[in-house]
Simulated scan of single mutants.
Amino acid sequence: MTAKIGVITFPGTLDDVDAARAVRIAGAEVVNLWHADEDLKGIDAVVVPGGFSYGDYLRSGAISAIAPVMRAVVDAAGKGMPVLGICNGFQVLTEARLLPGALTRNEGLHFHCTDTYLEVVNADTAWTSNYEAGQRILVPAKHGEGRFQAAPDTIEMLEGEGRVVFRYTDNYNGSLNAIAGITNETGRVVGLMPHPEHAVEVLTGPSTDGLGMFLSAIGTIAA
C-alpha cells in the first residue's frame, strides 16, 4: 500500500511544489492540503513546507499556526502521525507548540541563501532513520529568521534527551548550540530550517542528501 503524505499550502507558501516533488520521488502519494482544510484526507504523514506564510505578519508562522488545517495537524501529531516542518514550516510548528523554542532574526540581521552541511545528530526519528548519527548532509538553506533560541533549561532538555536532530557545521545564523533541527519527545515531529526538499535530484540540488528524510518517513509509515 502506497504511503500518503500531505503537503500543506498556506497563502504565501513557496516550497509546497518542491516538497510534493520530493515526496513523489521518494515513492509516496502526495495529498495536497489547503490552509482552510479541517480534514487531513486520510494521510499517513504531513509536511509543513517553507515560504512566507501570510507574509510573515505578526511573527513568522504565527497566523498559520492557528489555521484550521494546523488544528487538525496538532490533533494528528498527538496520535503519533509523523510531521515535518521545513523552514517556515519549522516556525509554524514552534508557534503551534508542537516543538519548543523560537526562530528569530539571523545573527547580523542578514537573509542567508547558501548550501550548508548539516550533522545528523539523531538518526532515530521518523524522518531521519535512513541516516547514521554523525553523517553530514549537504542541503540548501534560505532564511532571514532561522536563529534557533530557547530558554537555557529548554536547551539543556533538548540536548539531554537527544532531541537535537541536526546541527549546523558552520552556524552562519548564530543558532544556540548550532541547532538546525529538533524533534518532539516521540521523535515523530521534526522541524529544521534548511531545505531537504531542494536536495533530492542531481539536476536541481547540490546533492540528493535530502531524499533520505522522505524515505525515512515512508519507512516509518510502513513499519
Rank of each mutant, 00 (worst) to 15 (best):
G219I: 09
T9F: 02
L109E: 15
E38H: 10
E145G: 01
L84N: 02
H198Y: 09
P100K: 09
R147P: 03
A102Y: 02
M70C: 06
F148Y: 15
E107G: 12
I66A: 11
V31Q: 03
G181W: 03
I25T: 11
T169E: 09
I66T: 15
A150E: 11
D44Y: 09
K41V: 00
A141T: 14
T94S: 09
A20V: 00
H198L: 13
A3D: 03
G80E: 10
T204H: 12
G55M: 06
S53W: 03
K79A: 13
V48C: 05
A133Q: 12
I137V: 15
V46Y: 02
L103Q: 11
A62Q: 12
F111M: 13
R97N: 12
V121N: 01
G146L: 05
L14I: 05
F90V: 07
L211M: 13
G160D: 10
A20R: 05
E38V: 12
I179Y: 00
D209H: 15
K4H: 12
A199D: 04
I218L: 10
R167Q: 07
I5S: 05
V139Y: 10
M157V: 05
V202E: 15
V120W: 01
I25D: 02
N171S: 06
G51Q: 08
A133Y: 00
S207D: 13
Y117R: 14
T9K: 12
P206S: 13
V139D: 06
A26K: 04
I179S: 03
G210N: 05
I25L: 15
V17C: 02
L158V: 09
P194K: 09
F10K: 03
L118K: 13
R21H: 15
T104K: 14
G12H: 00
G210S: 06
G61R: 07
C87Y: 04
V200I: 14
A76C: 10
N184M: 04
F90P: 02
A199F: 08
R97S: 14
N88T: 07
A199T: 10
G27M: 07
L33W: 01
T183F: 09
V47Y: 06
